[in-house]
């Protein structure tokens, strides 16, 4: 398994709109989406299309709103008291902020993995089977199949198949992060949100995560927040630059990193910001 870097120093004309796999599940559309923490507006009129089965990297300086936007895609932000939103975010054409929507079901369709891995203090098997169990899967054989399938998709099966009953906390940091990805995959999501998933990992473990993202995009839509610009360049199909709560520029990654159109994007990528 290898990753083809997106570093192509040519200014070819590429379509700005995402293509992905037309008709596949996991298409995200933000329409003039706004978000407030109390009186502070964190996002201003974000309009963005994210194609199904593609990797989109959200980049920008700290506090630019990229993580807020990421957490808005599975409504995780509303767990914080005093927040409110405007506009809408559509998942496969349906507004995820509509009143009657089942938020728990939404979070199964839109899985999330955080910067700091957070496995439950349970066995590897129980971590992965947790979601399906609370969703009513009881048959042992069915659970076994989900656990094995999810661990394989997270490229962890070969490393843990002989110790599924061991505590998840005995795994290395990189393995625990892949276990968290397997746990998200066990719910069979359409979208996977990754919030700096490799920022606390060593280069080898980071490479495994990046390879995994590259493989998983054949099956689901991935949105990743990263401060590592090289990582965004390596693994994403499209890159979106946020600054001061606004979407400044979005485009194909190879164009964004070689010939961005906006002066602010250029300044951020070349370290001439502020």
């Amino acid at each position: 398994m290898s990753i083809t870097p997106n570093f192509i120093p040519a200014a070819r004309d590429l379509p700005d709109n995402p293509e992905g796999v037309p008709g596949a599940e996991g298409a995200i559309s933000a329409r003039e989406f706004r978000f407030w923490y109390g009186k502070t507006q964190a996002l201003h009129d974000i309009t963005l299309d994210i194609a199904p089965r593609s990797v989109t990297a959200l980049i920008g300086p700290s506090g630019c709103g990229k993580s807020t936007f990421l957490r808005s895609i599975n409504r995780l932000n509303e767990l914080i008291v005093g927040t409110r939103h405007g506009g809408e975010i559509l998942l496969d054409g349906e507004n995820i902020y509509r009143r009657e929507l089942d938020v728990v079901a939404l979070r199964q369709r839109v899985g999330m993995v955080f910067q700091r891995w957070n496995p439950f203090p349970k066995s590897i098997y129980d971590n992965v089977s947790y979601g399906p169990r609370i969703n009513g899967v009881r048959k042992r054989q069915e659970l076994d199949e989900i656990v094995e399938g999810s661990l394989r998709r997270a490229a962890l099966w070969d490393e843990v198949k002989d110790r599924l009953r061991s505590s998840a906390l005995t795994l290395s940091g990189g393995q625990q992060q892949r276990l968290c990805i397997a746990r998200a995959l066990a719910n069979d999501p359409e979208v996977l949100l990754l919030d700096e998933p490799a920022s606390a990992l060593d280069p080898i473990a980071t490479q495994r995560i990046e390879e995994l993202v590259y493989e998983l995009k054949n099956e689901l839509t991935i949105v990743i927040v990263t401060h590592n610009l090289q990582q965004a360049a390596r693994i994403s199909d499209r890159t979106v630059f946020f600054y001061l709560g606004r979407l400044v520029e979005a485009g194909p990654t190879e164009r964004m990193f070689t010939s961005p159109r906006d002066a602010q994007t250029e300044a951020y990528l070349t370290g001439r910001f502020g």
Binding site: F7, P9, A233, F257, T258, S259, T265, L269, T270
Partner: peptide
């Protein structure tokens, strides 16, 4: 330095 954007174009 793994330069990007204009810096990358300049060095190439």
């Amino acid at each position: 330095q793994q330069p990007m954007a204009r810096d990358l174009r300049f060095i190439i």
